[in-house]
Design a protein around this nucleic acid. Structure first.
Length: 414
RNA sequence: GUGGGCGUAGCUCAGCAGGUAGAGCUCCUGGUUGUGGUCCAGGCGGUCGCGGGUUCGAGUCCCGUCGCUCACCCCA
């Protein structure tokens, strides 16, 4: 079992039980977001490496060590997408979507790739769905998106989830704050952990997440970004929070909330489940008012989130959808498969799930198979046609397809 | 990249004073003639992750290696 070919490290096969759960989740996502006016959207699974380097940020862990990068035959550097927003924004620019009615609301679902050490809820190929609203900085979009994700989490049975919200400010206030924080951390350099000290310039915000005791003491007295927000940013955040409250959503403002992507401005948020292990984040996102411009488009605000399918399913109770009522067609004599196909087609047109004997089994084996797949009815093609109710065991003969179809229907209706 | 746990049939596992492998489930066949779900009998199925070493002999001890897993880091 540990020999021979295996799925690559950090990847996995989705077998039928899980596949059904994923399909059901996708249905919920499509319904919730679709009814809110978000349109389905797809971008390539790989993009120019430069898109992520510029979009996600050179200093992030993702770009520095987690990308699956390769060259095509022309020597172009390509990368398997580690996240979805950059690609969507690239498409927004490429297709001139700023000329459409704003904001443009899109949602997606698909595979993403990060070269990390796998553990519970973390894989090298994983599935995310996400939603983006590009072209408006209206705080109601931030709130709407947060509430939509919450609704999906609830309907997927992945709740309860803790919601943390914060604001990173606009680029200007954030830059000024980062300078202040960096200077402050420098003053207390000796009290900081090695890792934090090494990252002071790269990402001083990381200091807030440190477990290190000395670092925590320093950070407790450090300037907080929320206190440095401009009046506009503060207002924007308050508007978002107000809408969350009005909608009855509980949340915690957490100024230490740091997200792993550089493009965020203003609102950031994250949903966490306590049912998960160390990788507790079900999904999160925020506003990225600079990203589109950074990718060569006009100055365009945007906001969005992404959520992990595997984590969502990990947090939800493991209840596989009940199988459909099924019909099994058994063959008692050779040469009847054609008739079986015709009947199957006829029943399937009525929306019934039908399977036909195709393994050369004995009659006993066929009934066993019918039982195994959960058939409610077995139709037996022999000298005549028999319709058998698998619950009661009773069966009766039928003349022709139409009577057979009627009798199958009667049993299924019981 | 670092640390802990684990690695025996498709699945879940037992085998622990070292003597060349077992159970349950699954699957197949049979229990008389074309009929399932219970029961009974039989059968298929294992380079004991891989490579060295110790030993007369190793799944069982030692070393290495690979893989899985959880955690750190970071995040979906």
């Amino acid at each position: 079992m540990s020999r021979g070919l295996q799925a690559p490290r950090g990847t996995f096969d989705v077998q039928p039980g899980d596949a059904r759960r994923r399909l059901r989740l996708m249905g919920i996502v499509a319904e919730v977001l679709g009814r809110a006016g978000y349109e389905p959207f797809e971008t390539p699974v790989f993009e120019d490496t430069d898109l992520f380097a510029r979009g996600v940020g050179e200093s992030t862990d993702i770009v520095q060590k987690e990308m699956f990068t390769f060259e095509d035959k022309a020597g172009r550097s390509l990368t398997l997408r580690p996240e979805g927003t950059a690609g969507v924004c690239r498409a927004y620019v490429e297709h001139g979507m700023h000329k459409l009615a704003q904001p443009v609301k899109l949602w997606y679902w698909g595979p993403f790739f990060r070269h990390e050490a796998p553990q519970a809820g973390r894989f090298r190929q994983f599935t995310q769905f996400g939603a983006e609203a590009i072209g408006s900085d209206d705080p109601s979009l931030d709130a709407e998106l947060i509430l939509l994700l919450r609704e999906i989490i609830d309907r997927a049975g992945a709740g309860p989830a803790r919601l943390r919200v914060a604001s990173l400010g606009t680029p200007a206030t954030r830059a000024a704050y980062l300078e202040e924080l960096t200077a402050y951390l420098r003053e207390h350099e000796r009290e900081l952990s090695d890792e934090v000290r090494a990252r002071i310039d790269q990402n001083p915000l990381r200091a807030f997440d440190a477990d290190h005791e000395g670092t925590q003491r320093v950070v407790a007295e450090a300037p907080k970004l929320l206190d440095r927000l401009s009046a506009e940013d503060r207002q924007h955040l308050d508007a978002v929070l107000g809408l969350l409250e009005a909608a009855g959503a509980t949340y915690a403002v957490d100024p230490t909330l740091v997200r792993g992507l550089d493009y965020y401005t203003r609102t950031v948020f994250e949903f966490e489940s306590e049912r998960l292990g160390a990788q507790a984040a079900l999904g999160g996102g925020g506003r990225y008012d600079r990203l589109v411009e950074e990718l060569g488009g006009p100055p365009t605000p945007g906001v969005g989130w992404a959520a992990g399918v595997e984590r969502m399913l990990l947090a939800a109770p493991n209840d596989e959808p009940a199988p459909d009522a099924r019909v099994y067609i058994a063959l008692a004599k050779p040469g009847q498969i054609g008739d079986a196909f015709a009947l199957a087609r006829r029943l399937r047109d009525d929306g019934i799930r039908v399977e036909v004997e195709q393994a050369g089994r004995s009659m006993k084996g066929q009934l066993k198979q019918a039982d195994r797949i959960g058939a409610r009815v077995t139709v037996i093609f022999g000298d005549g046609i028999e319709v058998k109710d698998m619950d009661s065991g009773q069966q009766s003969g039928a003349e022709g397809f139409e009577e057979t179809v009627d009798k199958v229907g009667e049993v299924l209706d019981r």
